[in-house]
Structure formats: structure tokens, C-alpha cells
């Protein structure tokens, strides 16, 4: 009968299993030229011109290499890998035939763009957020992104920043219309709600319910209004969908529902003795020109806004 493994045995066992030196004859060797050829042959959409160039380069490497060595005996240039790297760089350039719009279509592309951290590969319970940067007229998406994982209760438990960033070359080509098409129509919907809050002499109607009357009726209390916006990719009906998500938060220095029932809406109303808070979160599917508000409000989750408020408009 076996005994239960002690901590010491466990540590020793793990060390021996994973940290025992691999014998020389069992170590692998990197075959550079072979790999390059495999890489070229396996490219499905590879431009034949590039293929020819790469093969010519490889042949040149093989044929001319000894000559280079003879000519430059005093210079340590017997490094096939440096030349190989150049070839691969060229191959890489040839691969960049897609626009950024296409680039964002699937997870693998997102990962290649550095928008999904390398750390996780299972993002079924995660959402990907992309910071927005504005250069005045156009919006540039990304150079920084992060994912958020949720537990079974929908609480965010892990935030992961990307370690890589999209190159300057890419970011120059990313414009709002490419990947978040309906952003402008989604903004207009949010602005309507904001303007209702700003209009102190009118009531605010949200989802068919009066959630705030004219401020006169409450003795003109102080009101603070703030809107956050973030672009994100989120799973919706099994697909990664580009979304624009807004959070309108409004605080009133009085309890506007004293003695009344709080209306049944998704306005996230919290009341205390002398305070009323509204947290309205709106998510729009921006994969088409006319953004569609998503009924399933997945964004009322803790901590998200705290982590990006500084970076939003």
C-alpha cells in the first residue's frame, strides 16, 4: 500500500521529473535551412513571387555563403541564422497582405496583433478591451489592450494587460470605421440620455420609466454627470463582436425616491439617505454601420470601470 506523498517528496519528485538534465543524444538541434523551406512550402496563400524569392535567397545562402567566408575571413560572418532571419523577415512582410479590419476578425489575428495576451488561450469567459486613443479627428484603436476574466458569479477576478503592442505602422492604419463601424450611431444614443440628465428642468425617462424628475422638485440638488467609454471585443452569441460600451454615472445630492418605489430598470440605481446614484451601462454591437444596442447587458460587472477610467474620454 502506498503512503500519502509528503511536501518534501512532492518537491523532490517535481524536481526530478522536470529538472533532470536531458542526455546530449536526446537534445534537439535546430535545423535552420530545413525549417525555412518547410515554412515557405506550408504557406497556403503565399505569393508565388515571394516563394521564388525565398528559395533563391536560400540557394544564395547555400551557394554564396562559403565565398563570403573566404572573402571575410577576419570578420565573423559565418552566421547563417542572421541571413535566415533576413529571409524570414521578408517572408513576414509578404504575409502582411491583409488590412487591419481583416486582422481583427478572429482570435488568432487578435493574438498576432498583440491584442490578446499570450498568457491565456481560453477566453470563453473573458472579454477583450481595447483602449482608444484619439489624434483629433480620427480614433485609433489600441496599442494597449487587456482582457478580463470572470468567475461564475460574473465578478471580474483577473485583469491581464497585453505585453506587446501593435506597431506604429499598424496603429496608423487603424481607424474607427475599420473595426467599430457603428460607433457614431451608438454615441448619439448615449448623448440623448446624457442630455436628458443635463436638462435640470425636465424629467429623465429611461426604459419607459421616469428615473428622475425635474430637479426643481427636489430643491435643485447638486448633480454630477460622468460618462466613460471603452471599445472592446466581447463574446456575443458565440462570436467575438466589436462593441462600444458606455457607462453613464450620475450622482444627485438627495434621495429622489424617498417614500417611492425605485423603478424597475437597468439604470443601476442606488439610494442612500441623502444620495441617489445612477449607473447606466449601454453596450452596442458595432460590427455594422448602424450600431445595435445589446439587450444582454453584460457589462455591469465590478471593477471594470475603475481599471480604465483614466484612459477614457
Amino acid at each position: 500500500m502506498k503512503n500519502v506523498m509528503t511536501d518534501e517528496e512532492f518537491e523532490k519528485g517535481m524536481h526530478l521529473l522536470f529538472n533532470s538534465e536531458v542526455p546530449e543524444e536526446s537534445c534537439f538541434t535546430f535545423d535552420k535551412n530545413e525549417e525555412i523551406q518547410v515554412c515557405v512550402v506550408n504557406k497556403k496563400n503565399f505569393n508565388s513571387k515571394c516563394l521564388c524569392r525565398a528559395i533563391v535567397c536560400i540557394l544564395l545562402v547555400v551557394a554564396v555563403f562559403p565565398l563570403i567566408n573566404i572573402i571575410h575571413k577576419n570578420i565573423e560572418k559565418d552566421d547563417a541564422s542572421l541571413i535566415s532571419a533576413e529571409i524570414l523577415e521578408r517572408i513576414g512582410e509578404c504575409e502582411r497582405v491583409y488590412s487591419f479590419g481583416e486582422y481583427l476578425k478572429n482570435e488568432e489575428c487578435l493574438r498576432l496583433a498583440g491584442l490578446i495576451p499570450d498568457e491565456e488561450y481560453d477566453i470563453s469567459d473573458a472579454e477583450i478591451f481595447v483602449y482608444t486613443v484619439s489624434d483629433g479627428r480620427r480614433k485609433i484603436y489600441t496599442q494597449e489592450a487587456y482582457t478580463v476574466w470572470y468567475d461564475e458569479d460574473g465578478k471580474a477576478f483577473e485583469f491581464m494587460m497585453t505585453k506587446e503592442s501593435v506597431s506604429d505602422e499598424f496603429s496608423e492604419n487603424i481607424i474607427g470605421a475599420d473595426c467599430f463601424k457603428g460607433e457614431f450611431s451608438s454615441v448619439s444614443g448615449v448623448r440623448n440620455i446624457e442630455s436628458m440628465f443635463r436638462n435640470k428642468s425636465a424629467e429623465v425617462i429611461y426604459e419607459g420609466e421616469v428615473i428622475r424628475k425635474s430637479l426643481d422638485e427636489y430643491g435643485m440638488p447638486e448633480q454630477e454627470l460622468h460618462t466613460d467609454m471603452i471599445c472592446m471585443y466581447s463574446r456575443y452569441n458565440g462570436q467575438l463582436v466589436p462593441m462600444c460600451v458606455y457607462n453613464i454615472s450620475c450622482t444627485l445630492n438627495c434621495n429622489v425616491f424617498k417614500g417611492d418605489d425605485i423603478p424597475d430598470t437597468t439604470a443601476g440605481i442606488i439610494v442612500s439617505e441623502n444620495l441617489t446614484e445612477y449607473n447606466i451601462t449601454l453596450a452596442y454591437d458595432c460590427s455594422r454601420n448602424n450600431a445595435i444596442r445589446l439587450e444582454e447587458n453584460r457589462m455591469i460587472k465590478e471593477n471594470i470601470w475603475n481599471h480604465k477610467t483614466e484612459r477614457t474620454e
Binding site: E21, V22, E24, S26, C27, F28, T29, S81
Partner: peptide, 20 residues
Amino acid sequence: MYSKFDIGYYLEECRERLSR
């Protein structure tokens, strides 16, 4: 012979551990 500017040098140095 590899120089320190050559990836071959680095790959050789870590070959065993990378294999492992």
C-alpha cells in the same frame, strides 16, 4: 564558431534546457 551577436551562440548555450 559563433559570436555573441549570433543567435546560434545563444541557441547552443540553452539547447539542453530548451530541449528539456
